[in-house]
Amino acid sequence: MTATPDQGLPTGLAGAGQPAFLSRFRLRGAVWLAVPAVLVLLVALAYPLAIVVLRSFTDPAPGLDNYVWFFQSAVNRAVLQRTFVVAAWVTVVSLICAYPYAYAMTIVGKNLRLALILCVLVPFWLSGVVRTLAWVILLQDSGVINSFLRGVGLPPVKLIRTLPGVVIGMTQVLLPFMILPIYTVMKGIDTRLLQAARSLGAKPWRAFVQIYMPLSLPGVYAGCIIVFILSLGFYITPALLGGPRSILLSSLVQNQVLSLLNWGRGGAMGVVLLVATFVLLAIAAPLMRQKHSATRREA
């Protein structure tokens, strides 16, 4: 592949060329530098997660009661299913929006590209609460969309506290996470491959579908997995835009712990969410790694 991580080579070779004891000493010295970060992670990530897992099995009594309760309740199963369905919708809709946009970013001139990047980066870095607030203003019964509909003489639609409202808001909030990885991979694709295909007689569309799209897949996989995982755990946007009939798993966890003080049941739900996330990541890890080696080249 052209995407050989050549930046990684010098260090690897330097290690190989040195006497074994020296390279081992160096390696150990370098790893020590990560100790403070690992400590922070142990205290603020690993330990809290361990507590959640522990309580899901022990609170109020040791055993699998909390998990049995979770999977026996039809309401909980419906919420779990809804969480996955919403995540899938958000992923599909944002992929449809992001792919052409990312492609356009790679073919336009410099100034237009800056403008397109700006449109992605401002929402990417703007507080999620503020962007959700904007959707509350837009979607509410007395919001922008409904006052527009009333203005042209159409009946108002119920958007806030409905599932479509949640999907619309989440898609917009998560769209940058889809565009950026796809763009990063597309930027590194050698467009001469397309010219080569064309010169061999391929129609432009065929060259695009057969050459360009497969090369852009690592970015697509990365974007999809990031958006899907973030959707599964999304909390603020569904909490503010959703209603009782569009509740997602995160809100259910929060409700169990903060309102009902039921740490065991809340913990069990959290563990289900956590396991789902890591299973997805494990499946997608090989695809993501491909992306890493493809993007490294232009680092």
Binding site: L45, Y47, P48, L49, A50, I51, V52, I229, L232, G233, Y235, S250, V253, Q254, V257, W263, G266, G267, G270, V271, L273, L274, T277, F278, L281
Partner: peptide
């Protein structure tokens, strides 16, 4: 990648 709410309750 850890879901925010799970981390938060922990």
């Amino acid at each position: 990648v850890v879901p925010g709410v799970v981390l938060a309750i922990g």
